[in-house]
Design a binder for these strands. Structure first.
Lengths: 150, 150
DNA sequence: TATATTCTTGACTAAATCCATCAGGAATAT
DNA sequence: ATATTCCTGATGGATTTAGTCAAGAATATA
């Protein structure tokens, strides 16, 4: 599994756009976002390019142009952002193909599949809105009911 | 966050030792484990060295020597193994120090902390025994009650 | 229309990290 | 003694990461 600076920058930058949207700013320039979030601007250029291709952001060129979210902030999941810019979020050694020990599954294969499920469940159920609102434990997982004990 | 071949080899190799133990084999040689699990032997040497220092494995030298688990297999958690050999399993950009945006916390900081908690909870509640027994959903998480709906 | 502005694309690079290999030494069983 | 096995540290090639840079295309505005 891989979660690099690139993916973290991506999440931070998209969160920035979501916050701008809350403040009624529609388009933000790369240079603005880069400065606010301490991200190298030319690097953010690359990252936003991927996010636009993944239809998470939309862009217009020229003066007053920039980037904005392509969907409401409760409809964009953190996992989407990461998948758009990261190379490989799979934990299995064999990319899920089950050939991790000489053509067959290694003894840890199913464990890493479960781990993948866990990570994906977490990342795909957290929206930009959830993160901005600092909501914790607000997501009701499949087959589970949350009961406060403290 | 980082989960590399090294960490995956480590988990596989320790699972191998746990399975050997079940078959009443006490000590296994590096070369044996390496061959069974398709892991380069000199690399596994490095890995086992770290695991011994972390007191997950114990070793004896000489003929009939080798490695074995230092504890029962239900008392060794997968997360321990990974922590012993991987460089950095922290997802925050600032190693948790809260200096990810010019001295203060970036807007994604708390999210990555939650993500860390999620991953650690998963990895630290799965023992070698759990994985070998293919148990799924057997772990009751804090503040949660599992209720089958299907 | 001219111009400044902003995204768009692709090539490029230094540094870091990963994934090992290898050699020589130390301990131990027989 | 000797063979066996772990122990340690140095080394190195390949890959990936984390950016930089330059030239071009689209757009708003005067």
């Amino acid at each position: 599994m891989n979660l690099t600076t690139k993916g973290k920058y991506a999440v931070t930058a998209v969160l920035d756009l979501a916050i701008q949207e809350q403040a009624d700013v529609s388009y933000s320039k790369i240079s603005e976002v880069a400065q606010r979030q301490s991200i190298p601007a030319p690097y953010l250029e690359q990252i936003f390019s991927s996010l636009r291709k993944a239809e998470i952001l939309s862009a217009t060129r020229g003066p007053k142009g920039g980037f904005k979210l392509s969907r409401p902030k409760d409809k964009i999941m953190i996992g989407e952002i990461i998948n758009a810019v990261e190379r490989n979020m799979d934990a299995t050694q064999c990319s899920g193909e089950g050939i991790c020990n000489g053509g067959s599954k290694c003894i840890a294969h199913n464990f890493w599949m479960d781990f993948n499920d866990n990570v994906n469940e977490f990342l795909m159920t957290k929206s930009l809105d959830d993160v901005i609102s600092q909501r914790r434990g607000s997501v009701q997982l499949k087959n589970e009911v949350l009961i406060a004990t403290g």
